[in-house]
Computed example of a mutant assay.
Amino acid sequence: MAFTTRRGTATAAVFAAGLFLAVSACSSSSGSGSSSSSPSSSMSTSAGASAAAVHTVKDASLGTIVVNGKGFTLYRFDKDSASPPASHCTGACATLWPAAPATTASSVQGVDHKLIGSVTGTNGAKQLTINGWPVYTYSMDTKAGDTNGQGVMGTWFAVTPTGGKAAGTSGSSSSSGGGYGY
Rank of each mutant, 00 (worst) to 15 (best):
Met1Ile: 13
Ala2Lys: 15
Phe3Gly: 03
Phe3Ser: 11
Thr5Cys: 06
Gly8Leu: 11
Gly8Trp: 14
Thr11Ser: 13
Thr11Gly: 12
Ala13Gln: 14
Val14Trp: 10
Ala16Glu: 13
Ala16Ser: 09
Ala16Leu: 06
Ala16Cys: 09
Ala16Arg: 14
Leu21Gly: 15
Val23Glu: 15
Val23Asn: 13
Val23Pro: 04
Val23Cys: 10
Cys26His: 04
Cys26Gln: 13
Cys26Phe: 02
Ser28Asp: 12
Ser29Gln: 15
Ser30Lys: 14
Ser30Arg: 07
Ser36Gly: 12
Ser37Leu: 14
Ser38Arg: 05
Ser41Val: 11
Met43Gly: 07
Ser46Ala: 12
Ala47Gln: 10
Gly48Ile: 00
Gly48Asn: 05
Ala51Tyr: 00
Ala51Lys: 00
Ala52Ile: 02
Ala53Gln: 05
Val57Leu: 03
Lys58Arg: 13
Lys58Asn: 14
Ser61Met: 01
Leu62His: 06
Val66Gln: 00
Asn68Ser: 04
Gly69Cys: 00
Gly69Ala: 07
Lys70Asn: 10
Phe72Trp: 01
Leu74Phe: 04
Leu74Ile: 03
Tyr75Ser: 04
Arg76Thr: 11
Arg76Asn: 10
Asp78Ser: 15
Pro84Ile: 05
Pro84Gly: 05
Ser87Ile: 09
His88Met: 07
Cys89Val: 11
Cys89Ser: 10
Gly91Val: 08
Ala92Arg: 13
Ala92Thr: 09
Thr95Pro: 03
Trp97Arg: 10
Trp97Lys: 06
Ala99Thr: 11
Pro101Cys: 07
Ala102His: 08
Thr103His: 07
Ser106Gly: 03
Ser107Thr: 14
Val108Glu: 04
Val108His: 00
His113Thr: 14
Lys114Leu: 09
Gly117Lys: 01
Gly117Ile: 02
Ala125Val: 02
Lys126Phe: 05
Gln127Asp: 06
Gln127Ile: 05
Gln127Gly: 01
Leu128Glu: 05
Thr129Glu: 01
Thr129Ile: 05
Asn131Cys: 04
Asn131Ala: 10
Gly132Pro: 08
Gly132Gln: 06
Gly132Asp: 02
Val135Met: 04
Tyr136Thr: 03
Ser139Glu: 10
Asp141Val: 02
Thr142Trp: 08
Lys143Thr: 14
Ala144Phe: 07
Asp146Tyr: 04
Asn148Trp: 05
Gly149Asn: 01
Gly154Ser: 07
Thr155Trp: 03
Thr155Pro: 04
Ala158Lys: 00
Val159Met: 03
Val159His: 02
Val159Trp: 09
Pro161Phe: 08
Thr162Arg: 00
Ala166Ile: 02
Ala166Asn: 00
Ala167Thr: 12
Ala167His: 08
Ala167Trp: 06
Gly168Ala: 02
Ser170Glu: 11
Gly171Gln: 05
Ser173Thr: 14
Gly179Leu: 02
Gly179Met: 07
Tyr180Ile: 13
Tyr182His: 13
